[in-house]
Design a protein around this nucleic acid. Structure first.
Length: 183
DNA sequence: CCCTGATTCGC
DNA sequence: GCGAATCAGG
């Protein structure tokens, strides 16, 4: 297989959509993810940032002596940058039965970014049925189980987590921002 | 262990 | 230019 114009375009398209190299490779067929990555680099779009947008990070400083990052504890910082009201889509997510699927963002204050990412990811979701889930498919439930508008994300999970990157973000939101729970 | 992209280097 | 091997990370 060679990099025909069409294949390159598909590559660009998918890469632009944030698809992983392995997925792109699978889609193209006849190539490995390495080939895809290699091509991506040669095309100069290693960074998923469009041209002109990213000021990049020119770090030609021969004297690297910035600062050591100190972490007080764990949990990534979750600042609430945009006071975005964000409509409250009363999404009713009923979890099946005694399944340890703890989501349910509502209560906690999830960063708008995370939610946005989830919404975005739900478009790409594989929409798997319960039985199609595997050890490495995102088990985030979407929709109402009582209707046929119910499915699981199904995107590849990250590490040992039960969800994909995006859903991990909202599922395991470090409850640090609002921990003052005097009781 | 599964995955991700990044880089190298012989072809 | 290509991509397998390798590296570095989650």
């Amino acid at each position: 297989m060679s990099w025909t114009d069409e294949r390159v375009e598909l590559l660009k398209k998918m890469w632009g959509e944030g698809q992983s190299a392995s997925q792109i490779a699978k889609e193209l067929g006849g190539v490995t993810r390495n080939a895809v990555i290699g091509k991506v680099h040669r095309l100069g779009l290693s960074n998923r940032a469009g041209p002109g947008a990213a000021p990049a990070k020119p770090e030609p400083k021969p004297e690297p002596k910035p600062k050591a990052a100190a972490k007080p504890a764990e949990a990534e910082a979750a600042p609430a940058p945009e006071p975005k009201p964000a409509s409250t889509p009363a999404r009713k997510q009923i979890i099946p039965a005694g399944q340890p699927l703890p989501p349910q963002p509502s209560a906690n204050e999830i960063s708008p970014e995370a939610l946005a990412k989830v919404s975005e990811v739900e478009k790409k979701a594989k929409k798997l049925s319960l039985m199609e889930l595997t050890e490495r498919t995102c088990k985030w439930p979407v929709g109402d189980p009582a209707t046929d508008d119910f499915w699981f994300c199904g995107l590849p999970v990250k590490a040992g987590k039960p969800y994909c990157e995006a859903h991990v973000g909202v599922a395991f939101q470090p409850l640090s921002a609002r921990r003052d729970r005097r009781r």
